[in-house]
Design a protein around this nucleic acid. Structure first.
Lengths: 331, 331
DNA sequence: CTGTTAGCGCTTTCAT
DNA sequence: ATGAAAGCGCTAACAG
């Protein structure tokens, strides 16, 4: 005798009520107190647990939120996922986590997955080069909010004020007297990096200084580009790193060259991380208000799920915070 | 006119076949080639995407795997989640990600969530102090494999050979001539830490050396305990850190005390991480074979889902790898 | 406030 | 190889 999972009907029978009454009780709709007790008892007695898949099929809402990011093993995104999970859980939904590894093809696969699972909404950090159309058509009718990377103002989004932050950061570097500041970028197709590049260019132009770009498609090649640059004739006298992953690569390059603290090129990087204050010298960074950002993202998503299309597209851009430690030249 | 999502029936009508034929086609069961084409065309024409929730209800399998960990924002776990996501995705399922923040109450909530969503299986890093019974009874009939922390040999598990690794690590420290080696632990209720403690104790006992325990319920207090110990009479001459989070706290304590590289107490820590080689001095660590572990975990889980209870409980314990950098005293 | 009934979209007998 | 019909567990009308 294999014991079937108890259903509403089982509970209903045991409590001597109709199935719909059990359903009502479950959803907190008006039920006579006396009946409520009987139902509650029957539920614990049978060890009944509602079936979300059945509910989803009937109601058309799955209480699941898709989250698609480049990868979890990047401090910024793992923190983001943590916050989203908490926020979404608080609202009685669960997170379906998918990664696209910066590949649009993989992203397409994951979007299709979200579609099959009928997630109520999606929080997405779009893969480099994604277009609004490709995203929209993959999930018609499903609310999407973009995080970290802005694709189009027509899509809800929550991002950093990238241009402004990069500009301020560059200006700070300039205020230390550096003139040959290099921007270090991994994948320039990524929207947020483009905006940061703009901000950097603006700040440099204002002082009539030439821009320097150190860039490579992957981090191994980037490290190579960095070491060559550091050893070359036109070695930059300061660095602006566009992501924490890039910052790591820069540190690796210093290490490879056995640069002592004094040799290290002053730098300032995007994204704060746990050990930033512990490297030598302590890293000055642009800190993102990640918690706030994810709260906004979840809020917007759920409003969109409930209210539908009525609302104007929301495009939130939050200011970064410059954290001055030593690496930029501050004492 | 609101456009309904196309269903198998819509596809069937358009292709002039029965709904079951469409279903068969979708699942790759024998269908006459001529019909297959008509169905395929209808599918693209309508933009049909199967509904997993309906399938799940009917079939009783959701193609969903629960993953519950303490938190995503810990390098070890974020890496683990990344690997699990890939592995699970490869098998056509999706990950529902939940965190318990090291709280058994929160863990109970999340287990109930997994139950409601009818996940086919669960990969779990149990909260400190969890018992087999509490875990089992929360999810009767659902396969669970424990990772990182062993609760009971009756439950499938994939963990590090913690005792052995700690012992080897301690022995290595001893080989450098240190005698007052302190074990630094955050939450001693965590199973893996207990095993590591055992290994440490064994190695110390073998040399007739006294054990030293530096421990605190949270990382702020731990940092305080560390600084007191470093400044006190019986300052340890080497440290064995039990997790990367603890290692960070130790580094923070060094920093707080403004210990220069020479003042820093030699140490060796569990868990490798990206910047381990970049701190000063570079950190010697016990590296976990995370990729292998997660592959094993997923394999076991899916076998369990398919074959059911027939299989003996699997308890995999993989050896750690000692990575010698400088911090332990090696040159 | 409560019970009956129908049906969400799919798969699975059971005939043909 | 194919179609008709039943049913997975739930909720939303609808009557009472």
């Amino acid at each position: 005798m294999k014991k079937r999972r108890p259903t509403v009907t089982d509970v209903a029978k045991l409590a001597n009520v109709g199935a719909s009454t059990v359903s009502r009780h479950l959803r907190g709709v008006s039920v006579s107190p006396e009946v409520a007790i009987r139902v509650a008892e029957a539920i614990v007695q049978l060890g009944y647990h509602p079936d979300e898949t059945a509910r989803a099929l009937r109601v058309g809402r799955t209480r699941t939120i898709g989250v698609i990011i480049p990868q979890v093993s990047n401090m910024f995104y793992s923190r983001a996922v943590q916050l989203i999970e908490e926020e979404v859980g608080r609202r009685g939904s669960a997170v379906i986590l998918l990664t696209h590894q910066e590949s649009r093809k993989q992203q397409a696969v994951q979007l299709a997955t979200i579609r099959r699972y009928r997630a109520d909404g999606l929080i997405l950090a779009p893969a480099a080069g994604s277009t609004l159309e490709e995203l929209r058509s993959a999930l018609p009718g499903t609310p999407v909010v973009a995080i970290d990377r802005l694709i189009s103002p027509e899509m809800d989004s929550v991002v950093l004020r990238n241009r402004e932050a990069a500009r301020t950061a560059t200006e700070h570097l300039l205020s230390h007297g550096y003139k040959h500041i290099a921007a270090v970028i991994s994948r320039p197709e990524i929207a947020s990096f483009q905006q940061r590049w703009q901000g950097y260019v603006e700040a440099m132009a204002e002082k009539n200084l030439d821009t320097i770009l150190i860039q490579a498609p992957d981090h191994d090649q980037l490290r190579y580009a960095l070491t060559s640059s550091f050893l070359g004739q036109r070695r930059p006298d300061a660095l602006l790193s566009f992501s924490n992953r890039v910052t790591q690569t820069i540190l690796l390059a210093f290490d490879e060259l056995a640069f002592a603290r004094e040799d290290r090129i002053p730098m300032l990087g995007f994204d704060d991380f746990d050990l930033a204050s512990l490297v030598d010298p302590p890293l000055s960074v642009v800190r993102q208000p990640t918690e706030n950002m994810m709260r906004h993202a979840t809020n917007i998503l759920f409003r969109r799920i409930e209210d539908g299309e009525l609302m104007e597209p929301q495009n939130i851009a939050l200011p970064g915070q410059l954290v001055y430690r030593r690496s930029c030249g501050c004492s």
